[in-house]
Each structure stands twice: as structure tokens, then as C-alpha cells.
Amino acid sequence: MQHIQYTSLSETAVLLSFGNTISEELHQQVMQIKNILEQDPFKGFVETVPAYNSLAVYYNPAEVVQQQGTIASAVIDQLKKTIEAAEQTSYNTTTSPVITIPVCYEAEYGIDLQELSVQLNLSVDEIIQLHTKPVYTIYMIGFTPGFPYMGTVDEKLVTKRKAQPRVQVPAGSVAIAGNQTGIYPLATPGGWNIIGRSAINVFDQQKENPFLLKAGDQVQFRSVTKNEFATLSAVENPDSGFKH
């Protein structure tokens, strides 16, 4: 296990840092520690936020049991104890099932595909093939509610962010930037290159659990035709009046 560094993010959060790179292995450790802490929460524990190589642990200072030193140091001692104890017992990592997300890569939705095709010297079909081939890991959810940061994109598809971010990206847009891919759940500003539109909502505030995805999940994209996209979207959004 990578050496973990503990630093206070605020009076109500400690940040656990796991090395200085982005790697699948480090991220698995982040998720493993997250699970350990959630299964055996200390007194005052509130929530965790995982990222690529770090994990924030939020707590309520008034509830933390503390004898001496700062409240933060009491929390850190407690975290170390919990993590050590869990490492003694053999801990099974469960692999997540792969969630398939249907995406329509038609030019109407993949508004940057033509430009990328020239820039990357690949045909649009090759881009679609390269994007749908890997099983991606969700490293974190952030930027907006439900936006998944996924990797790793095929090296032939590595792109720069747009120099001028769009003021508004259509909700459901599937995009790439650097070696990452993501889905914009809401119509928000965005600087990633848009290559398609998801037929399913990754964030639906009408549902009791609005989040389809979480950090640690596995995702694969499947290319669908415009017709199939329309059918799937109509099922997803029965009230949207989506008709063709």
C-alpha cells in the first residue's frame, strides 16, 4: 500500500493523499480506503469525497472524541487505526459490473467530431471505434452533480481542451479532453471536445437516487443509431415529447 499523507483541508475535513500521479492502482487504493472508512466510521464522520489520488474525509468537530492535541490530529489517529486494522484482515476488493452507456455519435450531437477527425488524422468511424473499445474507470464525480471523470482514453484520442470553452454545452454531451472522457449531465459551460450524446441520463433529479454513476464504477460506451437514440431517449424522458 502506498504511503498515505494526512493534511487538514479545513477544520472539518482531512485530506488523504496517495502519491503524485494518476494511476488505476492508486485510485483503487483511494476507493479501498473510502470503503473501509464508510464501513467502520469514527465518531463524528460525515462523508468522503474521492478523487484521482486523494480522498477528503469530512467530519463534525463537535462530535469527535478528543483527549489532547487538535481535533484534526484525533481524527487522523482514528483514521490510521481504522486503516491499519482493516489491512490486517484480508480485504476483498469487489470489481464493479460494467455499465454500458448508449451514445449517438451523429454529427448533430458529436459537434466536434469533424474538427477532431482532421486534428487527430483519424476518420470519424475510427474515433468512434477507439472511444467505444475500452472499459473506462470512473475516477471521480465532480465539476457538476453527476459529471464522471473517466479514463483512460486511447492514446490516439488524446486531445487538448478547447481554447475557448463553450458557454453552454448541451446536457448529455459525451466529451473527451486529455486522456479522459466524461458526460455533461447538465447544460453548463464546458471546454471538452464533444463527440456524441448519451441516450440515458447520468443525472436525473426526478429520481429518488438521481445518480446513475459513482466513483469506482466501470463504464463502456456503445454506439447507437439516431433511431435507436430517439427510442431510448423517449423511454428515459417520457414527458419530453421527444418525437421525430
Binding site: 472539518t12 493523499s17 500521479t21 478523487a51 477528503a56
Partner: peptide, 27 residues
């Protein structure tokens, strides 16, 4: 490498601007 932030976090942008995250700030 993108990492958690919270209310009150003071960020320094590449254009040397300071941004203090408030109630509706990102995570």
C-alpha cells in the same frame, strides 16, 4: 491533479487570480 476542495478554499488560478469557494462552490 484535481482534488477535493471545500467552502472557504482559496485557490490560485494560472492567471494569478484568487478564488475563494463559497456555498455553491464545486467539490
Amino acid at each position: 491533479i484535481s482534488s477535493p476542495v471545500t467552502q472557504g478554499t482559496i485557490q490560485l488560478t494560472p492567471s494569478s487570480e484568487l478564488i475563494v469557494l463559497m456555498a455553491d462552490g464545486q467539490t
